[in-house]
Design a protein around this nucleic acid. Sequence first.
DNA 1: CGATTTTTGCTGCAGCGCAACATGAAAATC
DNA 2: GATTTTCATGTTGCGCTGCAGCAAAAATCG
Lengths: 160, 160
Amino acid sequence: MPRAIFPAPDHDHERCTSDAIAYAEAQCAARAKRLTPMRRQVLEALLASHNPLGAYEIIERLADKNGRPAPITVYRALDFLRDNGLVHRIESRNAFVACGHNHGGDDLVVFLICERCGAVGEATDGAVAQALKASARAAGFSPKSPIIEIAGVCAHCGGR
Amino acid sequence: MPRAIFPAPDHDHERCTSDAIAYAEAQCAARAKRLTPMRRQVLEALLASHNPLGAYEIIERLADKNGRPAPITVYRALDFLRDNGLVHRIESRNAFVACGHNHGGDDLVVFLICERCGAVGEATDGAVAQALKASARAAGFSPKSPIIEIAGVCAHCGGR
DNA sequence: CGATTTTTGCTGCAGCGCAACATGAAAATC
DNA sequence: GATTTTCATGTTGCGCTGCAGCAAAAATCG
């Protein structure tokens, strides 16, 4: 049974953001990890945009009177957030998105990337996962972590 | 019905290479495109290794007494080869592989990337394609070009 | 042969990503 | 409370990725 989430352009973003932060805090607490200011800021920057951001875009958005964080700083925060399932990397874009956390840690996630608005939706689908596993096994291959990214046009941009 | 190709470590590489070159020549002839020396060299470099190569690795391998090609030169050759279905880009590696040409132009291809030996196999599977399409549609998404890359361990490296 | 298209070479540049080391802050142990 | 250990951040530096823009050379066409 497919389950998909694509951010509607008119969704309650305030709410969606605070929910995600609350989830991140809970997740970190549960794992005895620390959601430090730096990490929180990076996550917030990603949440503020439902589009994937490149590392240097994040740096740009975190820049203020106190200067801007060094690339490595942002990358480390991103590593942490990814390790804890709060952020995904979009390989085909060299960019990152906050996770919609509509899926369990090891679920196969399908990223739907809109070519018009750039928004990224996440879908989880057991059927796809099964078919993929079967396909890999048939080649004598033991799959670890599948990456699935689909470019296309989302419903809000008139794709039909 | 899944169809998969994973290069066996003891396969006839001589043959496999010359076949691929012949295919490339045929493909280019059919499309009235030119398989120039540069393009051929890049393709040969990729064929000589069943592992994906980064652009600068290709440059390295093409370097000789006459100097080395500039990055842009290799990228242009790669663009050409990709446009004509002779080379794939492995997004998760920022690298390129020669196409096993075991699939039609628009088929969905699943890349199986061995974490041990680095070899890349290609699988084509209608079931996966169907499931993916269904999943995307359910989210109101019109898919264009899916990218599927699976890291894991291949049969020859003891994956089971 | 001359004109057009295609391909290659050259310069330069911006983003990506991390290694190695130093510093500072927090948590655990005594 | 002081010390040790652990973790997080800052600093410097560098190599890879990828392409724009322009000029020169080669192939194709009329």
